[in-house]
Design a protein around this nucleic acid. Structure first.
Lengths: 210, 210
DNA sequence: AAAAAATCTTGACACTCGTCAAGATTCGCG
DNA sequence: CGCGAATCTTGACGAGTGTCAAGATTTTTT
């Protein structure tokens, strides 16, 4: 991927190697961050779980915080279109609701560490101002994602959504976070509950028929 | 330690001095924790913002984590009945919804640091197993609190709630967290939005009339 | 192939952290 | 008062942190 069509005919853009390495580093860092969380993931630990040594971080990033923010943005870019398939393929409101619930469950099973990291970072941004800009952007893009899902759902049902997208996002995020917490705690039935709750909740978010 | 609470009628139980001090320490610690968050609040910083020296912590607590957990439980005990007045004094569904919205806004204005600490700790519990028990208990008591509010709301309306209490808690928690984040980011209108959203949302949580 | 630029490793620095122990201080009771 | 227990302070320890610089190594260019 990545190699942009530079005006030069060189096979590899010499300056893009930098970005490639930054991405590779971010990839490793995300693994460690998802395992240990923001506070306990040291640069040495991050480097140990990668193919690099601990000093190389400061060659590609000025700061630990710059690395973190880069990781967060990188993660956002990967994950914000996770539900586009649901929107595109659903054939009826009921179908969409079920696909959405399934996908939420799948997200927890497959990417629990990433999401607990996200909640960690969002909480940290309540204390650390330097994280707020990135967090705000990601939060907005997640809200947009929910808005697309709900919008399509309403469209398929032939009505308007009964709630604004920030409210919808807040609700689903809360329920998702709760399920993630329960999942990490090893509580039984959290995934089934999550799916059932979503399927049950969706119809309530539609305006009554005109 | 160890001396049991004797049945003496002495004005001050000699062993309760311990608990008193622990509470005072917790009070100070909570102030610092609310300011800096879980990760950046060191024992020295906590002690500096109190009347004690940094070594005294280990006289009253075995561990930093024991102090933190004690603080969390202490905080829970103080805050879990914050909405009881709303339940007790509301005279109609509409009245309750408005009081509830007002109280949520008031909570953010008056105790933002405490609540960002709570979200911080809950996130940390996704990584740190030793926090999970305390976090789970608090989470449950918060869910119960929401259940009381919604239950009374439905009662006043003469119908049943349309959603189970975990769902209700997840929803309100998500919306509240969103508002808190916006508030700390200095976004305008978050408080009014929060109140409006709650008032608008509550009726949708009731089962349609039989 | 040699020189230059880039990338990476290693080791050290200053600092902060939780923890603890030894001694100073205060308190309670005879 | 005086003595012992409770309480608190101080200072130190080892481990871990982010950061950086100097040199080794690799890659690119001439």
């Amino acid at each position: 991927m990545t190699q942009v069509a530079a005006p030069k005919a060189s096979r590899r853009t010499p300056a893009d190697k930098h970005d490639e390495r930054r991405k590779a580093l971010a990839e490793s860092a995300l693994r460690t961050l998802g395992e240990l969380g923001y506070a306990r993931a040291s640069l040495r630990e991050i480097a140990n779980n990668s193919e690099f040594s601990h000093g190389v971080v400061h060659y590609y990033f000025n700061d630990k915080l710059e690395l973190i923010v880069y990781c967060v943005r990188y993660y956002k870019q990967r994950c914000v279109h996770r539900y586009d398939g649901v929107v595109a393929e659903a054939t009826s409101p009921e179908d969409l609701a079920e696909r959405f619930g399934d996908k939420l469950v799948e997200t927890i099973v497959e990417e629990a560490p990433m999401h607990r990291l996200w909640y960690d970072l969002r909480s940290q941004s309540m204390f650390e101002e330097s994280l707020r800009e990135a967090v705000t952007q990601i939060d907005q893009s997640l809200e947009d994602m929910i808005a697309r899902v709900l919008g399509r759902y309403a469209e398929l049902a032939g009505v308007e959504p009964a709630i604004a997208s920030p409210v919808a996002y807040g609700m689903f995020d809360g329920i998702f976070q709760q399920a993630l917490l329960g999942y990490l705690n090893g509580r039984d039935g959290v995934l089934e509950d999550l799916r059932a709750r979503v399927v049950e909740l969706m119809p309530m978010l539609l305006a009554p028929r005109a």
